[in-house]
Design a protein around this nucleic acid. Sequence first.
DNA 1: GATAAATTCTAACTTGCGTTAGAATATCGA
DNA 2: TCGATATTCTAACGCAAGTTAGAATTTATC
Lengths: 210, 210
Amino acid sequence: MSKGEDPGVLTEEVRPLAQSQKSIKKREAILRAAIEIINTKGFAAATMTDIAAALDLRDAALYYYFPNKQALAYAGHQRSLERFEAILIAIETDGGTGLCKLRRFLRAVLEDGVINGPQLYFGDHSYLEPAQQRAIDTWTGRLAKKLERFLEEGMADGTIADCEPRLVVQLLVGMLIWLTKWTPTTPGLTNERLLEAMETTALSGLARVR
Amino acid sequence: MSKGEDPGVLTEEVRPLAQSQKSIKKREAILRAAIEIINTKGFAAATMTDIAAALDLRDAALYYYFPNKQALAYAGHQRSLERFEAILIAIETDGGTGLCKLRRFLRAVLEDGVINGPQLYFGDHSYLEPAQQRAIDTWTGRLAKKLERFLEEGMADGTIADCEPRLVVQLLVGMLIWLTKWTPTTPGLTNERLLEAMETTALSGLARVR
DNA sequence: GATAAATTCTAACTTGCGTTAGAATATCGA
DNA sequence: TCGATATTCTAACGCAAGTTAGAATTTATC
């Protein structure tokens, strides 16, 4: 649909892209700030002014990028789930034992910025539209299933203890969610020490066999 | 300060008590409902109308028992911490190995009504007055220390693996906090299965040694 | 530099919710 | 039954925060 030899074609295509490029960057920054703030204070307590202030903006400016607060939060949920999915798929394609996959998952979540600027969250979404809630729930369910499969694989290949995957996954998720609350107030904490603590607690176990 | 032989003494003492007794019962019920609702929806999203509706009351009626929403939530925090402290002290006085104490703690928290009507919570308290926040923080810190001591005792008596107690306690707390969110939507779940899953995950560990 | 588009701001509107005052009702002892 | 106290309700106020409209400003293109 475009004339190949027209020298203007390049600029014609780049111009709108260049505009959008910048706009998208800012949209990303807003989304990032929103995720972190909502994650910290909760949806209701996190005000549009809070989020805007993180980027030296007024609350009204946010409405240029998102129609309303709900949509902003919903986008945050989606972003979070996309990241999780990417992590899980990467692990799936790489293969390995069930235990190996589980360990890689814990490490990946930590490295994906849990401590400084949590970009992964789940938790509450009762403030969303019912349809949005359902969408999040089914998506979350799919991802949880992937994790459960890791455990089942491990039980089959002998690397993971006999357990109820559904329950264990929720316990692990709880550990991860809580990270975003207490790690910011724990100075001197590194990903290495955190990962070691998690592996000791959940993988090798706290109990010493006698 | 009272006449010992006055037969009215008994009724005199009982009368105001009888009135208060009923009032206290209702105050307890309100507090209980508030803890559960705030725990589920968060402080900001939980409205006074929500809490009142749980007892077939209007929002204004709550102000007969609590001066304001903040005070109600603060009382909830205190109630929660009292329960935790009672659990921890009971375990301390009973003695046993570090691992034994840790196991007893997990069981006690579950039995204290985590699944049906969560009465224990921690999480966010950024909506309280700074002084109240400090009070909660120091109290929470004391209780966390008790848990950490269990781990240290276990490391000393050989029942618990080498670890950083500070970090491990937070990981365990995360597991427990998250319980109140997902267990209500998991039908057919029993305390026994839950406890077994927790012991498998955190105590004996998910990894099978080869 | 000038014009158009994109971006952000100011100011006001709206709604929900915490809170209060005072009326209404229930409870209870005499 | 009656009066007093305790408890709850109705109605309204005030404020905080989400949202909107339109002006103001910046940015990009010629």
